[in-house]
Write a protein that binds this DNA or RNA. Structure first.
Lengths: 200, 200
DNA sequence: CTTTTACTAGAACATGATTCTAGATTAGGA
DNA sequence: TCCTAATCTAGAATCATGTTCTAGTAAAAG
């Protein structure tokens, strides 16, 4: 039986500083082009420390991804639970996303561009589970509105794409520099479209 | 002045076989994890040949990307030009995409997941130009329908996200194995939603 | 038949990810 | 307060892999 010891007080700070440095590098030069040494220098840590905390480069990328997704999800649920009606709820899904990506441009860019990374299976499972439980909570919130006829009854898997797809797609164009106005600036148009698409 | 010589008859075949091998590897193990040697072995060519045709690994990835985008775009314009009305045109944008990604699953997955790759600036320019000219043609097609009042007048940059965003987002979920029905199976729902969102 | 250029080949090289061993630091108990 | 086990830091050594380079082969043009 091995003795369990608490992680040290400085650990979260070091982890965070590595993730922050990694994000800067990834955004600046792309994931593939940033070297472990870039991250090491930017975060002021050592190779040993990096590998101790994250295992390998993929591990750093995965940590950053999971971290970001969870912040985004948590922010949505917090805002959603303050809503008083179906319409307000649907509009909030769109406007929260718009505001969040505009306020956290770098991490949003990373999240939207990093599907490609072949995360190891255990990370994929973790991500799947995070997604599943988030979706479950969101659907629990909207379920009643559909049942009592305030919202259209559609195939279950089409609600998310129909409500969130357009603003997400717009955000991609914005991050790629192909459109000028930030998502936060045009959110009303997309909130309007979303509500029209699902109102009964 | 250097003499110009035709490319050899076998060249296109070799290029295609390299791209095909690359796609298989990229889908199977991810872009970052596939080595040049994997592609070399799978395509039955040599290192020299690979680098002669594509310059470097990024060049192979870029070639595959451009190739795929152009097929997708060409297929849309061909189908669009057979349409007789605003409604049929909007629905076709959605259904063509659904059918194409369902029929070309692997290349679709690659196209949707590879925004991340930091292509060299010259490739980015090339992609931007391909996108620009395609969008121009598509808007030329839809312009009259907006002007004569069959379709809503919306901010110009919101049409593509509103019409195509949902089916694209759904396709992502499908490729990730998170929904069962193929885009081709559910295309009518999304075509319906798209038309409702932009009809006058 | 000759010349020019596209194309193929793979060994040598350079870069950068990862492993490994050693040591420093901290938490928790005696 | 001191001891012990574990966490955490370090960076040199190793290994994998992308890229370059030189040499040669084969097809097109005259």
């Amino acid at each position: 039986m091995t003795k369990q010891t608490k992680p040290r007080a400085t650990t979260p700070a070091r982890r965070a500083s590595i993730l922050k440095a990694a994000l800067d590098c990834f955004i600046g030069q792309g994931v593939e082009a940033t070297t472990i040494d870039d991250i090491r220098r930017a975060s002021g840590s050592s190779i040993g420390s990096l590998y101790h905390h994250f295992g390998n480069k993929e591990g750093i990328a995965a940590g950053l991804f999971i971290d970001g997704i969870q912040r985004l999800n948590a922010d949505l649920l917090r805002k959603l639970k303050r809503c008083k009606s179906a319409e307000q709820s649907v509009r909030t899904v769109v406007t929260q996303y718009s505001d969040w990506v505009t306020a956290h441009r770098d991490i949003a860019r990373y999240l939207l561009n990093s599907r490609d990374i072949a995360f190891p299976p255990e990370t994929k499972d973790q991500l799947r589970e995070i997604h599943r439980s988030h979706i479950t909570e969101v659907f629990r919130w909207f379920g009643p509105y559909v049942r009592d006829g305030e919202m259209k009854a559609l195939p279950i898997d089409t609600y998310v794409p129909i409500i969130s797809g357009p603003i997400q797609d717009y955000t991609r164009y914005w991050l790629a520099g192909q459109v000028k106005e930030s998502p936060a600036k045009v959110k009303t148009v997309f909130a309007e479209a979303a509500w029209n698409a699902v109102r009964a």
